[in-house]
Design a binder for these strands. Structure first.
Lengths: 325, 325
DNA sequence: TTGTATGCGTTATCAT
DNA sequence: ATGATAACGCATACAA
């Protein structure tokens, strides 16, 4: 395959001139430019970008770490990231880590390796201290609130959002509330758990341990929760559920069993998913698309400006009132 | 940042020896290896992979072209791809093209540029002839059946699968069938459309043009279809719908209006999505995860073996009998 | 088992 | 406006 040297030879110019044409630099005469362009066309030449990456120290690529791509939550964030990356002419390297720390480290090593210009961590199995070590090699943005770290973050105020959801429920008069969480571990889960327990205590709400249910990630899990609620000697008047698809599963199964929603059981979802709209689930929209878009904009800004100062961007959330509460 | 030369100097060996250690080559004495490893540790050295890519001509990356990541269909395929890529220690570059030919071409140009070792095209706005032009620069695998092309493909027999779905419906005694399609354009859509029309004609089934509905991609679209069915002077006894989530929207809305499923209206879905299991939707599983996994295995094989001979892999499909037909 | 020298293909520097 | 040459950091053929 032809290289810049050959183009130069055939076009009768220096490699520098060819490079200038390639990069749209000024100070190239019209005819020389034409000659170069001609030769490029003739030889079907194209740059070897690896050489460009080597000498410029930039690759135009950003890696994204997330546990699973086929989950609404992550795919919407990814959508936001991808959209902005397209606009910025950047490439996205997807690392589906399955929460394996080992794999996530490999991605951060790519930053050290100069294979990528930055890393967006949507969810991580890694400790903040570990991530911080890598900020020396390039910008890192997380989509979780890890405090004022040496890397940027764009995050949802899970505590406040969850509390507001509970407030909404008590405002509607519910005095006993159950809680359905996704993965038990995970930083946002524990924050919400704290918010839940504190709120229950503050407002002296009725409560039973079995009303806190973990590891509900699928529609089927939601349905299973419905069945177990039906078998409880005493069940809560309302459920707050992280993920509208899980809420949907619960609602469909509960209705199948003859329960009226919200009459017999109120349900509040999370994430404002399409299925939630269909079932008219009252939910909290936490602007996931914007989260991804924002994360990319931040990392792109940091790469372009060579400014490593971290930024911390707090996102809005909003209760969408529908008819399951 | 330190480079191989500096490591060599400090460790008191040649750069070749350092390179050998780095690449786990044999013929390095124990103490020299230890010295090199020590120095690497001390200087916190890591390879500049761009230099490696330049000289080896390989990058260990494969690009994936798909229109939208936040759709069940694509995200499952992506999951399969990502899983296999992880096993093979390969990186995946995600290009969310929004069906923009221009963006898809850019990805194929990356193959020419040597930025990637291969391309997986899950869905494309590109003509087969255009794709074929790029096979000169590296292996390409598509997830669509485009016949015996100069690139590989792993595909679902949309015609046969759809026909089997219709067969299943007529087998259950339905004599008037409606059809709900995703994007009107798109190769699989037109194949199914042909299958549908031919089947209707062959079996002399009742048919009305308004029973063919296009551009149904969301739950809401499915619900809208339910509403429009209710307003038809004459409606089909059964609907076959590409995508369980669309079918779910239709079913939920239809039941809301008092229709019994399958009593008043039978519904057959596609893709075996989680929501379909919850609503007990009879569906056709076309093994999307396996599609992604298989696509990656093929391209990985072709990259590793330098064998450009295309392979054509036909996937299985399977009707899952539940209770909406 | 080890080292020297060369090449990968480009951009950056500096001189003219 | 143009060109000669260095530099990027590594792998590898070849010699020893």
């Amino acid at each position: 395959m032809a290289n810049i040297k050959e183009i130069a030879r055939i076009a009768g110019v220096s490699v520098t001139t060819v490079s200038r044409v390639l990069n749209n630099h000024p100070y190239v005469s019209k005819d020389k430019r034409a000659a170069v362009l001609d030769t490029i066309e003739q030889l079907n030449y194209t740059r070897n970008m690896n050489a460009v990456h080597l000498i410029t120290g930039r690759t135009g690529a950003v890696a994204v770490i997330l546990p699973y791509i086929n989950a609404f939550y992550f795919s919407i964030i990814m959508n936001g990231l991808a959209h902005e990356a397209l606009l910025a002419q950047y490439r996205l390297i997807l690392c589906q880590s399955n929460y394996l720390a080992e794999e996530e480290i490999k991605v951060l090593e790519m930053l050290r390796n100069k294979e990528i210009d930055g890393v967006v961590i949507v969810s991580t199995a890694l400790k903040p201290e570990v991530i911080e070590e890598y900020t020396a090699y390039g910008p890192v943005v997380t989509c979780q609130d890890s405090g004022q770290r040496r890397y940027s973050s764009v995050y949802i105020e899970h505590y406040a959002a969850f509390r507001q959801g509970l407030q909404y429920l008590t405002g509607k008069g519910y005095r006993s509330i159950g809680y359905c969480e996704g993965r038990q571990n995970g930083s946002s889960a524990s924050i919400r758990q704290t918010a839940f327990r504190e709120f229950i205590a503050e407002h002296k709400l009725d409560f039973q341990e079995e009303w806190m249910i973990y590891d509900c990630t699928t529609e089927e899990d939601g349905a299973a929760v419905a069945r177990s609620l039906l078998e409880m000697p005493e069940r809560p008047e309302a459920m707050i559920i992280t993920g509208d698809h899980v809420a949907a599963g619960l609602i469909i199964e509960a209705r199948k069993a003859g329960l009226s929603i919200p009459g017999d059981l109120a349900v509040m979802g999370f994430d404002n998913q399409p299925i939630g709209r269909l079932l008219e689930i009252t939910t909290i929209d936490n602007h996931l698309y914007e989260m991804g878009a924002s994360a990319f904009r931040i990392i792109h800004e940091q790469i372009s400006s060579d400014n490593p100062d971290p930024v911390y961007r707090k996102l809005d959330y909003r209760i969408i009132e529908r008819s399951t509460v």
